[in-house]
């Protein structure tokens, strides 16, 4: 993944051996930390005492409380070097949030902060296997290798990070309305319950072949083969780029991919002609087997 940082786990400890916090302080701390990208676990006297927090590998813990005695037990499942405990008695919400930032820095833990510079927005397709018929249209359609096939030859989302932020195009070509983007604004792409009219809607039943005069990979493969024969004479990288631009223009005209997404595409990051040919062959083999 582009960003391997797991959210830091902050524990608001108000269980046995600690005083409860004021409600406004609790709301302020929890809300601010969540907005900054932390996970927040609140422990109260009602928490099952047998369920002490347990650290996991790669997930740092910051435990906050107004402790009356020794701090609570944290079961160390991660090697004991990723837990920081802080007494927050006398601190207000901003003071506590600042203390968490200091503790995180001491632990050397990163943070994928929403809205922060370089933050990764979790935008990727989610498959509803209750609806998916494994037709592999999405695999054919996506140029960015987001999809793959698992050991049971079933479609899966393999490379989340390859997905182009705010592009829901593959969900529009899914004939079963089985692909969701939970952060999309409108249903049923956002995960809203699927209605019969959604399935019937023409935009949900786009035949990929109508887009580019055939299977997109077949089309690109043909393009790349034609281009290849010319390259052998001309060896022009500019022409290769022009091929891709033309293909993207056709996609743009189709209305499937938002213009702003296409505008941000790095043409050089698109699959090479060889990769396209390889994937086309793989798809043909998988379809033959199916």
């Amino acid at each position: 993944m582009k960003n391997e940082i797991h959210p830091v786990q902050v524990v608001l400890y108000e269980g046995l051996g600690a005083e409860p916090w004021e409600r406004e302080c609790r709301i302020g701390v929890a809300g601010t930390l969540l907005d900054q990208g932390y996970s927040v676990l609140r422990i109260t006297a009602r928490t099952d005492s047998a369920a002490a927090p347990r650290t996991a590998e790669g997930i740092p813990f910051v435990v906050l409380g107004r402790f009356e005695g020794a701090p609570p037990e944290i079961i160390d499942g991660a090697g004991g070097r990723s837990v920081a405990t802080r007494d927050v008695a006398g601190l207000d919400a901003p003071g506590i949030v600042a203390l968490v930032a200091e503790a995180r820095a001491e632990l050397g833990a990163g943070l994928n902060e929403p809205g922060g510079q370089g933050a990764w927005k979790p935008w990727f397709p989610v498959i509803d296997y209750d609806r998916c018929t494994n037709c592999l249209q999405c695999l054919s359609f996506c140029l960015f290798d987001v999809y793959g096939i698992d050991e049971e030859k079933r479609i899966e989302v393999r490379n989340n990070d390859n997905c182009k932020t705010n592009c829901p195009a593959c969900s529009r070509v899914c004939p079963e309305v089985a692909i969701m983007f939970p952060k999309y604004s409108a249903g049923p792409i956002n995960g809203e319950a699927v209605r019969q009219e959604d399935v019937a809607r023409e935009s949900m039943k786009i035949d990929i072949s109508s887009l580019l005069g055939g299977d997109i990979y077949s089309s690109l493969r043909n393009r790349s083969e034609k281009a290849k024969s010319r390259f052998s004479k001309e060896r022009s990288p500019d022409k290769a780029l022009n091929e891709r631009k033309r293909c993207l223009t056709q996609l743009q005209k189709s209305g499937l991919i938002p213009a702003e997404v296409l505008a941000e595409l790095d043409l050089a990051s698109l699959p090479s002609p060889e990769e396209i040919q390889r994937k086309a062959k793989e798809l043909a083999a998988m379809r033959a087997e199916a």
Binding site: A30, L41, W120, W123, P182, K183
Partner: peptide, 19 residues
């Protein structure tokens, strides 16, 4: 936060799922 009940909260479930 107003109740006495413990709870677990995540900044973003999609992010957790992706990871």
């Amino acid at each position: 936060c107003a109740a006495e009940t413990p709870f677990e909260s995540f900044a973003d479930l999609c992010e957790m799922s992706a990871r």
